[in-house]
Design a protein around this nucleic acid. Structure first.
Lengths: 216, 216
DNA sequence: CAGAGTTGACTGAATGTTCAGTCTAGAAAC
DNA sequence: GTTTCTAGACTGAACATTCAGTCAACTCTG
């Protein structure tokens, strides 16, 4: 029964395992209803061990959110690095939030965001995670826009304003998509958003992708 | 539901008092941490009485959310009725979600929305409230757009697509505003959004002005 | 290299608290 | 005098966190 410690980095592995388990539970039950016991069960350990690693439930959950956001951001920048045109990179950003994806568990990210926002209102730790993430993301967008402007792909709009607008739009659409609103299908949301961006930034868009994942 | 009418709806008054109290507590503590006792205390009654009226905590909270959304929607349509031009009405809609307001507790609405969304993911009752509210709101926008098109104020864009876009944008901005993101000030959000709408619908906007919601 | 000591991972059984919801019975209204 | 409203005391379950200690794998030391 008891999986005893083997070699050295057991602890780190265990921690990460718990973080991932916590994310699963948060998606299933929601942040406030995620119990230490749930996480413990999922990694085949006792609740006491989870507390042993994270000190408090709140620390576990906050760290789990940070872990998830970091992973999402990293995946995003990794993907964008593989695309040459600014327009293509922008399209990828939009696709990441609008379109479900099989590689990552991006699907879960949406639900996680809802919890992240709701918790941010009262939990300082969570608020910090969100703040950092949002800033980073808007920064990514505005940098991308400036790059496109320098290369002549994009028109001369205010990059920061555009970043605020686009990120807000994506957030709003993500809510609808996460909650499965029948009036806002992912493909539709994607198309509307790209059209919006193309219109604002003045680049031509070649229409909806025949099949997404025409991987570079 | 079993409003016995009879001699003065004391019961109805009590109910509404409790609903309002519940909303206050939800804003302060968040939906999941709102206790029956909190609501009872706020109306100077016993927890047992609150349960007597609402049967379960969940029913109380769900009904409170519905109550709030209905009130917000009603306030919105009431205000719009007083404005003649479609562009003016649209501006009012945007102002309602972006700008803090002294009459209503609209400020609270934003935080309420975050909870509403997060709960919608797992609570069917709350999900129903949200679904209905969103649909109604988008309907309001698209109807307004069509009216503006008939009167020649607005260009011929797809009204439904525009409604999806605008409502998502407003939702996304509401998140930032609700959480007090320093990079997204209310006035800025308002201006960006009106510009977006004016651009899309092809009407002229006379720029930000102190004339509108001047409370100073 | 035996064994004494040390450490890190781990657990089962409390502990204490927090709440939603119930029960009993009294007060008010009709 | 029955129905409606109300409170106080209580129950029962759910949980986070603590505690005291187990167990195996190490590192010394003589």
């Amino acid at each position: 029964m008891k999986a005893q410690a083997g070699g050295g980095g057991m602890a780190d592995q265990r921690r990460e395992q718990m973080l991932r388990a916590a994310l699963e539970v948060i998606v299933e039950r929601g942040y406030p209803d995620t119990r230490v016991t749930d996480v413990a069960e999922r990694v085949g350990a006792s609740p006491a061990l989870v507390i042993y690693y994270f000190k408090t439930r709140d620390q576990l959950l906050t760290e789990a959110l940070r872990y998830s956001e970091d992973a999402w951001y990293a995946a995003g920048t990794r993907r964008m690095a593989a695309i040459e045109t600014a327009a293509g990179r922008l399209e990828e950003i939009i696709a990441m939030t609008c379109l479900p994806d099989e590689d990552t568990d991006a699907n879960d990210s949406w639900l996680l965001w809802l919890d992240l926002w709701a918790q941010s209102a009262r939990n300082a730790g969570v608020a910090a995670v969100r703040q950092k993430f949002d800033e980073r993301w808007r920064e990514t967008i505005s940098t991308l826009v400036r790059a496109g402007q320098e290369s002549g792909e994009f028109a001369a709009v205010d990059a920061d304003d555009f970043a605020v607008l686009l990120s807000a739009l994506l957030d709003g659409l993500a809510v609808q998509i996460a909650l499965g609103d029948p009036n806002v299908r992912p493909e539709k949301a994607f198309e509307l958003t790209v059209r919006f961006a193309a219109d604002k930034l003045g680049f031509a868009w070649r229409g909806p992708r025949g099949g997404r994942h025409d991987r570079n």
